[in-house]
């Protein structure tokens, strides 16, 4: 009997960890529910009951142990982890890995962060800002300065986000930096249009993940998590807007 209890405990632990990792890193709710149900089913639990929200998960299986809660505290955007959990779940379904291996790999995945290196992220921020400035505004002259301003804005956002961990404040500071740099660049004759440089520069900060997820969550019928994501996206957009507005007001 105790072996069965341990097994149930492990199933719950694995499913809850998988679910938490996915929500933390920006997955939509429906996918989390789907993955967790599959894990429980493939591990041999006959039925499973789930309550997944953006701030926490509640799960029960019919077995020896009661329902368990897993709170979701932090929220970042790291879609690679979602892909890895998805991959592991597929492998588990195909019996390539055991439940124990699955749980170990999830714990390992949870503790490591495998972002692109800093220089690649800076380059990427530049390559979002410059090209989009040209695409939106057809202003080829300001391409390079948009790249530069967007890169510095992302750097400020990234560093602040690492230390103070409040996304909205970091976005505000990043946007304000972009505004100030754009105004100075035009002042020094490095660029023509403040507007175009700012439009390009803030593009890396666009909350693309919450926007997309909120639409998908609402569609799937998750009427609590969907609007919550929409609020997240709106607050992000407002923070960026305030940062820009403040600069425009003062200069």
């Amino acid at each position: 009997m105790s072996g069965q209890k341990k097994r149930d405990q492990l199933i719950l632990h694995t499913a809850l960890t998988a679910g938490r990792i996915m929500i933390e890193n920006g997955s939509e709710i429906e996918r989390v529910e789907d993955t967790m149900t599959r894990i429980a089913h493939n591990a041999g639990a006959e039925t499973s009951q789930l309550f997944v929200m953006i701030t926490g998960i509640l799960m029960a299986i019919n077995g020896e142990v009661g329902a368990q809660i897993q709170p979701v505290k932090r929220r970042t955007f790291d879609l690679e982890k979602i892909a890895v959990v998805n991959q592991l779940s597929r492998e588990f379904a195909a019996h390539d890995i055991t439940l124990r291996q699955f749980a170990d790999k999830l714990d390992h995945l949870d503790s490591e962060t495998k972002y692109f290196p800093m220089w690649a992220q800076l380059l990427a921020a530049a390559m979002v800002s410059g090209p989009l400035e040209v695409v939106f505004r057809h202003n080829l002259h300001d391409f390079w300065i948009s790249c530069f301003v967007g890169m510095i804005g992302w750097l400020v956002f990234y560093l602040l986000n690492k230390f103070i961990q409040i996304r909205f404040l970091s976005e505000f500071a990043g946007a304000a930096t972009i505004g100030i740099l754009a105004v100075f660049a035009v002042h020094l004759g490095l660029g023509i249009s403040v507007d175009d440089i700012i439009i390009g520069g803030v593009m890396p900060l666009v909350p693309g993940v919450p926007i997309t997820n909120s639409v998908r969550d609402v569609l799937a019928g998750n009427l609590v998590s969907g609007p919550a994501r929409a609020v997240e996206a709106l607050v992000s957009a407002a923070a960026i807007g305030f940062g820009i507005a403040m600069v425009l007001q003062f200069l």
Partner: peptide, 24 residues
């Protein structure tokens, strides 16, 4: 030429945004 620049810009920026949110 403008059209080509737009397409290239869209491709590069989409890719780069993917790097920022750490897409595999």
């Amino acid at each position: 030429l403008e059209f080509f620049i737009e397409v290239a810009g869209t491709y590069v920026s989409t890719l780069a945004f993917g790097v920022l949110i750490n897409i595999p």
